Amino acid sequence: MTDSLVQPITDREALPVELVDEAGHAVGTCPVSQAHQSPGMLHRAFSVLLFDESGRVLLQQRAAAKTRFPALWANTCCGHPAPGEPVAAAAAVRLAEEMGLATELTEVGVYRYHADDSRTGRVEFEWDHVLVGRLEAGSPRPDPAEVADYAWVTPEALRAALGSDPGLYTPWLSGVLDVAVDPTPS
C-alpha cells in the first residue's frame, strides 16, 4: 500500500527548461543541468520579491546543497517555468514550495544576465522574469532543503549591503531588485 500524501522526490536538475533567443522567444528545451553547464544556454527563469506593508523585501539564504550559488543571499524565491507554463503560475508554486507562502504575484519586467559560479563550475544564463508581491498575512515556513535562512530588509539597506559586501549575495539579486523597485514601463 502506498501513502497518497507522500510526494515523489523530484530531481530538479532533470526537469526541462525553455530555451529562449535574445528577444525572449522560445526556441527549444533541455534539462536544467544542461542549461547550467558552461558556457550556459539562455533560458526562461523567474525571480520573486515579496514586500511587507512597510516596504521591506523578503530575502532567502540559499541552502548549502544548492547546485548553483549555494549559501548566498538571494531574492524571495526563484526557479524555472516548465516549457509553455505561465511564468506567474510556476512562480506561485515555487513560492509555496520554497517559502511556504502564497500571495498574488505581478510580473514587472525582465532581467537578462549571465553569471559563472566559480565554486560549483555551473553557470546562470537567464531570461529572468521578475515578479513582485505583497505579503499581508502569514510567516515564511521555508523548506530547509531549499532555504538556510531568511530576512526582511529595506531596499535601501539591501543596496548598501550589495555595494559593501557583494560576495554574500547572488549575482542576479541587484538586477532583480532594480527591476522590482523601479520597473521600466513596457
Rank of each mutant, 00 (worst) to 15 (best):
M1F: 12
D3H: 04
Q7N: 13
R12D: 02
P16I: 06
A23N: 10
G24I: 10
H25R: 07
H25G: 15
T29L: 12
C30M: 13
C30Q: 13
S33T: 14
S38T: 12
S38P: 14
R44S: 11
A45W: 03
F46I: 04
S47Y: 00
F51E: 05
E53C: 11
S54I: 11
G55A: 08
A63V: 08
A65D: 06
K66G: 10
W73L: 03
N75P: 00
C77S: 09
H80S: 15
A82V: 07
P83C: 07
P83I: 09
G84H: 11
A88K: 05
A88F: 02
A89S: 09
A92G: 05
R94M: 12
R94H: 14
A102Y: 04
T106A: 07
E107W: 07
V110E: 08
Y111E: 13
Y111T: 05
D116Q: 10
D117C: 07
R119T: 08
T120Q: 08
G121T: 10
G121P: 04
L131F: 01
L131H: 01
G133Q: 00
E136C: 11
E146S: 14
E146M: 14
D149R: 08
W152Q: 05
W152S: 06
T154N: 03
T154M: 04
T154W: 04
E156Q: 11
A157D: 15
L158K: 01
A160V: 05
A161W: 05
L162Q: 07
S164R: 10
G167A: 12
Y169T: 00
P171S: 14
L173Y: 00
S174D: 14
G175Y: 02
V181W: 01
P183G: 09
P183V: 10
